[in-house]
Nucleic acid binder design. Structure first.
Lengths: 248, 248
DNA sequence: TCCGTAAAATGAATCAAGTTCAATTTTGCC
DNA sequence: GGCAAAATTGAACTTGATTCATTTTACGGA
């Protein structure tokens, strides 16, 4: 019976090896040049062994995207418990996403690619479900932040809109800006200089427009930047709970 | 000399035939199943002839996306001249985009696909430039709407934000909602019922948050819907300038 | 009208890469 | 140590995009 278990662990370990090596290859040579045979070789396995884990190349790509998405979701977890106002927590959502995507530039592009009809349809049902599931915790966290704000009366609930639909607005703004930032030719065409500073600005505008208290003066660029840095520090602290005493 | 010109026209006609037939095939059988040889056959040409026009399959896809994008851009043209308030014109931008994407469901997915690193890198420089160029008029129109609003004092300009950067916020919201609406599994995961009603709502919230006058009470769902219908009617009228007298 | 040349079109052959599977090797157990 | 089952291997297969030697067509001058 322990044999069974060890086998499963070894299999899992090897799958991680394939996924991580594939990520390395993609980082190094680009998604375009990823080849199944070369990936297998890089891992010292035969090509066929790859297909013990992934039903197709698209399946593999989706597995990579899913791994990253799980890590991305983890970054959101501490937010509902953050010692801050509900509005600051919502800003924390935006900042967390910005920072994750900024430090994982390949992730967003891969996610865009596998979300494409062509790739999506070529992957197995299990992988597709796993990808959707990996993203679900994020919308749950953000919805909770919205629900908490309504509960705290920082935000007046509108009967026709559930928390998840408010959350979706920020999802759109964020995803849209990632798209703008990562799609070739777009930043240049729009002549947008600093997409993520812009995202924070529009995020505040949307928060203000929803009447999310306390309102922020978006014209005061200094204050907006300072607040973002303050929330970032809070996020860093919550990510390393055992860090030494805070210094001012 | 007329021979030269006729040749060029014939060539252009044939390219359009290829592009339109390819669109038909995609609509009928999906992007996944588009094959160069079958497209050529469907047009009664040899496979090699396709490559007189498109350097690769990706090149062809980009050409299709570009054609659609040109048509999409055309839909925005009348907006700056619309007899309406600046805020209504901005709403017209959002509605025009919603309606175009709704009636061209394949367009957005194809555009997403060709914007992908993998496909982008496989297309020729000319096609990539053409795609970017085809989208530029849209951002120009929207920027003009923003600039006009500032000029009319409906919107207080912020020194650090140029009109195009305000426009980009709406681009993000729109593109994000299209993504949410068209990406498999997302609508279900977010449990969003009517993405485009939601987009209109958040669009108003963003407008309010930017202080774009006159502010709209987003809680008044009836009024929001009615206004959208009114603007849609205005758009239809401006698209068919020779239509018979308006009936109330 | 006919001819020769240049341009265009053709589609079978080539190529690349993902996928399969018969043969081989390894593993776990008696 | 030996055997059956499971896992691994990598060469062969498959699919479909791309090429290019050959054929056909178009054009302009005699």
């Amino acid at each position: 019976m322990s044999t069974q278990e060890r086998r499963r662990r070894e299999r899992e370990t090897r799958e991680q090896l394939f996924i991580q090596t594939a990520q390395d290859l993609i980082r190094r040579e680009g998604l375009l040049h990823l080849q199944m045979s070369r990936l297998a070789e890089a891992c010292d396995y035969a090509t066929g062994t790859l297909y013990q884990h992934f039903s197709s190349k698209e399946d593999l790509l989706m597995a990579i995207a899913t791994e990253d998405l799980k890590r991305r979701a983890t970054a959101f977890e501490p937010i509902p418990g953050l010692p801050a106002t509900s509005r600051e927590r919502m800003l924390a959502v935006v900042l967390t996403d910005i920072d994750f995507i900024s430090s994982h530039p390949d992730h967003f592009q891969l996610l865009q690619y596998v979300s494409t009809e062509v790739i999506w349809a070529s992957a197995s049902l299990e992988r597709r479900q796993a990808l959707v599931q990996a993203g679900a915790p994020i919308s749950e966290v953000v919805s909770r932040v919205v629900a908490d704000a309504i509960h705290a009366a920082d935000l007046v609930g509108i009967p026709s809109l559930r928390p998840v639909e408010i959350a979706a607005g920020f999802w759109c703004l964020n995803t849209g800006m990632h798209t703008l930032a990562h799609t070739h030719g777009l930043l240049e065409a729009y002549a947008v200089r600093d997409p993520y500073a812009l995202l924070i600005h529009h995020g505040h505008a949307l928060l203000n427009g929803l009447g999310w208290q306390p309102l922020v003066d978006t014209g005061n660029t200094r204050a907006v930047i300072d607040e973002a840095e303050r929330i970032r520090a809070l996020l860093v602290r919550s990510a390393n709970p055992e860090s030494p005493a805070v210094t001012s």
